[in-house]
Structure formats: structure tokens, C-alpha cells
């Protein structure tokens, strides 16, 4: 699905150069469920943002479905991104002024899909994450767990094959966190590739592979035996 080759990312301020990612090599195959772990500031989110094409690498190559996207400009990246990648954030990032259904629809809004079909797919995905009864509510009226379910629904409504989750359970209590992880598990079982940044070892256990980052470098990779 995607290959990172000697990928680096530096941040420059006036005097200091900070290395966020240093010569990272990662291969992720279609259908994998990968967890990225590591202490704060190790470069997890930077890595995820680059995979999600929200950020560009400073050096090295990023091959997405065998296509080298390292040098693509913003609109080219946006084009690939919206067809292939869904995002789930720690802070949900729902738009407060829009209803649940409209927030989910947002992911289809920029895809040239007719309004009728958009409605159908939103309805369908709301059922599958169990949020249909809240369709007309605003995010502010929902619990954190419900908000994150909306975010999950938004990430998958466009049939995206790659789901990137940045600490999806970070703002949730353990019961709701569990619920979201099971939802991701289910998506993975249905064939979606999932890359998740997390601090929680127990949630990382849902993944089949864990990548540990430290100071911008991949220190270990561990595979969990498939049961």
C-alpha cells in the first residue's frame, strides 16, 4: 500500500534545526492494522501527517500505491488524499455549526457525488456506527464517544482504503475507547488498512504490527501473532 524510503523531516527555525523524522523506512501492506507508539515528541504525529499527505517530507521518498508522491504539490496531494485516506483525530475535529449528518457528509461534499447518493451513504454509515438516532444533533450535544463515532463514520463514508487515526481514544474514557477500538478492528476485518498513533499499549494490541519511534527513528517493530 505505501512505502517510506529514507524519509526525513526537519523543522527549521531561525537558529535551530529540529529533526522530527530521521531516515525512516516503513512498508505497510494493504489490509494491515499498524500502531505507531513512542513517547511525546518522538515524531509519531509527523509521521502520520506525512502518510496522510497533510505534510511533505524534507528528504527521502514516499510511495503511495507505487506512486512517488514526495514531490507532489498541495493540490495533487489533496486529490489522492480525498480518494484514499480517511482521518480520525484525538480531538474529533467536528465542525460545531454542522449537524452529525452534515459533518459526515463533509467527506463526500468535495467528491462530486450527487446529493441523493450522499444522503444514502451517510445514512448507511450512521447506522453502521450506531449514531443514526443523533443525525440532527450538533457535536456539542454528544458525548465524547459519540463524537468519535461520528468522526469514524466521516473517515469511512467515502470508502477510503487507508484510515489514519491520531490517538483516537486519547480524549475518551476506557469504555468508550474500547468501543472505538472495536470499531477500528471491524473496519480492518472488512479490509481497510489502518495506521494508528497511540499511547496506550492495550489499544496497540488491537494492531497486528507495532512500530516504536524514538527521536525520529524507528527503534523496533513487533508483530503480533495472528490468532
Amino acid at each position: 500500500m505505501l512505502k517510506l524510503q529514507n524519509l526525513s523531516k526537519f523543522y527549521r527555525t531561525d537558529e535551530v534545526e529540529t529533526v522530527a523524522l530521521d531516515q525512516v523506512n516503513v512498508d505497510i501492506a494493504a489490509g494491515e492494522f499498524v500502531a505507531i507508539m513512542g513517547p511525546s515528541g518522538c515524531g509519531k504525529s509527523t509521521l502520520l501527517n506525512i502518510i496522510g499527505m497533510l505534510d511533505s517530507p524534507s528528504a527521502g521518498h514516499y510511495l503511495f500505491k507505487d506512486e512517488d508522491v514526495s514531490d507532489y504539490n498541495e493540490s495533487q496531494l489533496a486529490e489522492i488524499r480525498k480518494r484514499n485516506i480517511g482521518f480520525i483525530f484525538q480531538s474529533f475535529n467536528l465542525i460545531d455549526e454542522l449537524s452529525v449528518a452534515e459533518n459526515i457528509e463533509l467527506a463526500l461534499l468535495y467528491h462530486d457525488i450527487p446529493a441523493g447518493e450522499r444522503r444514502d451513504r451517510v445514512a448507511q454509515v450512521m447506522n453502521s456506527v450506531g449514531i443514526a438516532h443523533r443525525a440532527k444533533h450538533k457535536p456539542g450535544q454528544l458525548s465524547g464517544g459519540q463524537q468519535q463515532r461520528v468522526a469514524v463514520a466521516r473517515a469511512i463514508v467515502g470508502n477510503q482504503s487507508l484510515i489514519l487515526a491520531d490517538e483516537p481514544t486519547g480524549n475518551l474514557d476506557s469504555a468508550h475507547g474500547q468501543e472505538v477500538m472495536e470499531m477500528l478492528q471491524g473496519l480492518n476485518d472488512d479490509g481497510a488498512t489502518i495506521v494508528m498513533v497511540t499511547h496506550s499499549p492495550s489499544h496497540a494490541d488491537y494492531a497486528r504490527r507495532t512500530i516504536n519511534l524514538f527521536d525520529g527513528q524507528v527503534v523496533t517493530e513487533s508483530l503480533r501473532a495472528v490468532v
Partner: peptide, 16 residues
């Protein structure tokens, strides 16, 4: 800014 960020992540282009 945040809303605009979300919309862009969802694939909105500058013109939109």
C-alpha cells in the same frame, strides 16, 4: 481556522 483545516483534510480545495 480549525473548520477550514477540517474541510481541507476532507478534500476541499482553496477555491472552495
Amino acid at each position: 481556522t480549525r473548520e477550514i483545516g477540517i474541510r481541507k483534510v476532507m478534500g476541499a480545495n482553496t477555491g472552495q
